[in-house]
Design a protein around this nucleic acid. Structure first.
Length: 424
RNA sequence: GCGGUCGUGGCGAAGUGGUUAACGCACCGGAUUGUGGCUCCGGCAUUCGUGGGUUCAACUCCCACCGGUCGCCCCA
């Protein structure tokens, strides 16, 4: 029996790294004054069809959709934003006194794709959503938060790419321009793009196959179709980024694979060597229409999703070590029936009194138990043998120095407390 | 969905049509009678992803399937 394709077990030795980055990120979210939200791991399929968009790859070919016993169509969460927007509407968070609502989440996502380096069928994302503000400073704050996460973990090979997709009017104008531009060349484009031209011409720009086509380089840039309002908005976002010293590159072909974006779109990539073919670490943008799409009031919003597997890969690629300080306060060594029974009572007593302690459960010889204690990086070994048992004592050995002394059992707890708290 | 590549013990990794399947790490035991990290000695794959086929003989050749991995598309 193996785990399903595209899934992995995160074993204890790896969980350390996960907890480390999660702790760091949560601390940053707290500093930026964001609150955690937890939404269901599956939603009605319509949530993603309407929220993410019917023409997207996610909806068209990557969703884990199933029918429940009541005949309802449900889908395992493929991305975070739609569910959060749905929750925002359903719980009327737009009515909260504090606006905007600034949220973050850690959640697993599911996409039916062929796995490869940095691409899993079940993946973990950290994400942020800010709903209820159309201030370009929020766009900048969200981008700043993402960059701060990476920087604070020590990553340096980063590239921030931004673009503006404009508002509804700008997008419509640009869309028409794209159709006019590509239609004469339609037969020369790949099959996918011929469909895209009909459904969502913006995504033709995203195509890798037709990248070399002459019509690509001469295609109308969204930036030339931004109306004044959109243009000013984009300028403001860039000015805020400049003022915070955040470097970026404007890429007019960055359109993102999700239909809901308008105005700001951004992606953070890694430059690091040995990162594989996948370089996108995080992506996001503004989605001012989604809340309304779910039946809520017109609500501007922006957010991003950050792949945690890719974050860990990036740390690895840049040679950043995760601190590993696993130690064990005490390890009780006992050989023989009577001593072992006494040892069970002793570890229970010490644990009850707040001391971290473990013992052998493999009936190993004393020597092997000491070896185990060494492997666990135990600070102290408590030896409880026949002699100690008959005398009501415990031998305490400090592993770092090898020094040991015999203590009356009554003094053990106090001594350990003193050593473990004072010694640190 | 398509393509490349790989599949030998807990892990890493030799091997080659011929009959005991190297080695390293880890682990277990012993030298050490109650004491770790070093050293020495010993133990640890009736078996080479699964199923067929070729052959006197297959881990080695062929086919299929399964699985891993990398890449394409697209993205986290």
């Amino acid at each position: 029996m193996n785990a399903p394709r595209g899934t992995v077990d995160i074993l204890p030795k790896d969980v350390k790294a996960w907890q480390y980055v999660e702790d760091q990120i949560k601390e940053i979210c707290n500093r930026y004054h964001y609150s955690e939200i937890r939404t269901p791991v599956f939603e009605h399929t319509e949530v993603y069809q309407r929220g993410v968009g019917d023409t997207t790859d996610i909806v068209q070919k990557e969703m884990y959709t199933f029918e429940d016993r009541g005949g309802r169509s449900l889908t395992l969460r493929p991305e975070g934003t739609a569910g959060v927007a749905r929750a925002y509407v359903q719980n009327k968070l737009y009515g909260e006194a504090s606006q905007p609502v600034k949220l973050y989440y850690f959640a697993e996502m599911f996409r039916y794709e062929r796995p490869q380096k940095g691409r899993m069928r079940q993946l973990n994302q950290f994400g942020v959503e800010v709903l209820g503000s159309a201030d370009p400073a929020v766009d900048a704050e969200v981008i700043d938060l993402a960059m701060t996460v990476y920087r604070s973990l020590g990553l340096t090979s980063l590239k921030l790419i931004i673009n503006s997709l404009g508002d509804k009017e700008s997008r419509a104008d640009h869309r028409q321009a794209l159709i006019d531009h590509f239609t004469p060349h339609k037969e020369e484009l790949c099959a996918d793009c011929q469909v895209r031209l009909e459904q969502n011409p913006l995504r033709v720009l995203d195509c890798k196959k037709d990248r070399e086509h002459p019509a690509m380089s001469s295609s109308p840039s969204i930036l030339d179709y931004l109306n004044d309002e959109s243009k000013i908005y984009f300028e403001d976002v860039k000015a805020y980024l400049d003022s915070m010293g955040i470097e970026y590159v404007v890429d007019p072909t960055l359109v993102r694979g999700l239909d809901y974006y308008n105005h700001t779109a951004f992606e953070i990539m890694s430059d690091a060597e040995g990162f594989g073919a996948i370089t996108t670490l995080a992506g996001g943008g503004r989605y001012n229409g989604m809340v309304e799409e779910f039946g809520g009031p017109s609500t501007p919003a922006i957010g991003f999703g950050m792949g945690l597997e890719r974050l860990l890969m990036a740390l690895d690629a840049e040679g950043i070590e995760i601190p590993d300080d696993d130690e064990l306060d005490c390890y009780v060594v006992a050989v023989g029936k009577e001593p072992e029974q006494a040892a069970v009572r002793l570890v229970h007593e010490l644990r009850t009194n707040g001391i971290q302690v473990d013992k052998d459960y493999q009936q190993r010889k004393m020597k092997a138990q000491l070896k185990a204690a060494d492997r666990y990086r135990a600070k102290y070994v408590l030896i409880l043998g026949e002699d100690e048992l008959s005398q009501g004592t415990v031998t305490v050995k400090e592993m770092a120095t090898g020094e040991q002394k015999v203590l009356p059992k009554e003094e053990l707890l106090e001594t350990l407390h003193g050593k473990l708290t004072g010694g640190k």
